[in-house]
Amino acid sequence: MAGLSFDLIALQLFAGLALGAIYVLFAIGLSLIFGMLTVVNFAHGAFYMVGAYVGLYLISIGGNFWICLVAVPIAIGLFGLAVERVLIRPLYGRGIDYPLLLTFGLSYVMVECVRIAFGKTGYPFDTPEVLQGAVDIGVGYFPLYRLFVIGATAVVLLALWLFLEKTSFGLIIRAGARDPQIVRVLGVDVSRVWLIVFGIGTAIAGFAGLLAAPLQGVIPEMGGTILAEAFVVTVVGGMGSIGGAVLAGLLVGVVVSMTSLFAPEMAKVSIFALMAIVLIVRPQASSAAPD
């Protein structure tokens, strides 16, 4: 192989951060739901996949990508509200394994429903015309759409942070995550809070699925692979820690990218190796308290 140049290493690093942004966007909803509700949502990948399919459907009936950016998270968020209200809520207080098993089964049902409705073969999802092509970022050419994904992730994170830190409802959510009983005693309907948190988490998953669609097309199984990677991010960042998920997502992206440069066939294994190292060196980090 030809020698490494500074530009190549810098571009590789940037590619890793961009990949990390995608991991962050996907993992953040998972982390939010676990951090606030202590629900390990195994259906998160299925919500992500349904988000991509809802976008595909909306475009097929005359919508466009920009409309989808608003409509998809709303649709998947509403779907998430229904799932929480009907399926998850009855399981609160029964132990962490009950919602885990339920969402695990739900993910299979959702994938199968999409296969029945849309077929098993995937569909193309074109990059929006204004975001097509690559731009020079100083060290090489990089796809414009990936830069857009980084920007969109930053906007989602900022909005989430403002919502949780600067609004009174966010204060209730944080208090509820810390001690739901006290919040309940204070007259707050905690179940309503959980409902909204679950809705927000799934809305972000749907949004991530929509953003991923132009990168890889749409197939019913698309949520499966990224779910495993998202769990790595949430474990490395500390289960339930939103700030940790952001840092871990970026770290995982960079680790994958730099491994790809020197030992590409090891890229996939590298993220699991990273998780193993974190679990060995800092086991307490994997069960960090919510931010």
Binding site: A2, G140, E265
Partner: peptide, 24 residues
């Protein structure tokens, strides 16, 4: 033969492999 970059089966993101291939 400038190089053979191998990826695991089931790779969903090639963005970290493509810059190296371009550089070749």
């Amino acid at each position: 033969n400038l190089g053979d970059i191998r990826h695991p089966l089931g790779t969903t993101d090639f963005s970290t492999l493509l810059p190296r291939l371009q550089a070749l």
